[in-house]
Amino acid sequence: MIEQLSIWLLEPMEYTFMQRALIASLIVGINCGALGSILILKRLALMGDAIAHAVLPGVAIAYLIGINFFWGAVTTGVITALAIGFVTEHSKIKEDSAIGIMFSAAFALGILIMSNIHTGVDLFHILFGNVLGVSAGDLKLIAILALLVITLIILFFKELKLFIFDHILARSIGLPTSLIHYLLMLMLSLTVVASLQTVGIVLVVAMLITPGATAYLLVNRLSTMMVLAAFFGLISAVIGLYLSFYLNVASGAAIVVVATIFFLLALFLSPKEGILTTKKIFGN
């Protein structure tokens, strides 16, 4: 039995591309889970989706002019975040609408470029990920980006916590709150770029939000929520990757489905918040 399991687990690892895929998924799972916790509590889930879509034109342009897609993706991601902020601050359009307008515009622009000009990039891979195609160079980039994001979270944990929980206090003790907001947007763009190949643009929001939401239902502290979210991100990524190998299904989708199963388990069975365990279903 154990032997069977270890064969089952080790066999895919004979392929270098599977090793790289596994490491990439692990890193992305941790990175998305940790940052996603912040997005959930700051009600920026929609923003996560927006920035994910907004990197598309950047990727297209980067391929066109022959630079690393990283630079293009981060640039259009951050520009879109700035544009959303600008519209919200300078008109009566509320943030959710501003997000809707700006990210669809950026996404449409990306599709436009890709459909007309031959970029040599497979749109399907960008939209839905292609974790089996991760090269050694890609892996290095993913690791650097994730390390950067996680280091920023650890270094500025105190400030981020205050900013998410009570931005009025943050402002009144003199923290630069708009700077923190844009730092968060930058971290989000970096995370999206790191996740492009694993889950792709369309599904990255699930990796950001679902593990964090699962953790949120289970614990009562921000720090433990982040660690647990990273854990759920990580094991969803690993299980999803194996499923995609053995069942021959798209890896990004498999990872997201696994993450969602964890979420549903927590939703119904969490000792503190579970719908079944606390009988919330019968009303409060």
Partner: peptide, 17 residues
């Protein structure tokens, strides 16, 4: 928000930290 009473009060110290 996943935060304890103690953590909320600790935020009062952030100004000095």
């Amino acid at each position: 928000f996943p935060i304890s009473v103690e953590e909320v009060v600790m935020m009062g110290r952030y100004a000095h930290l």
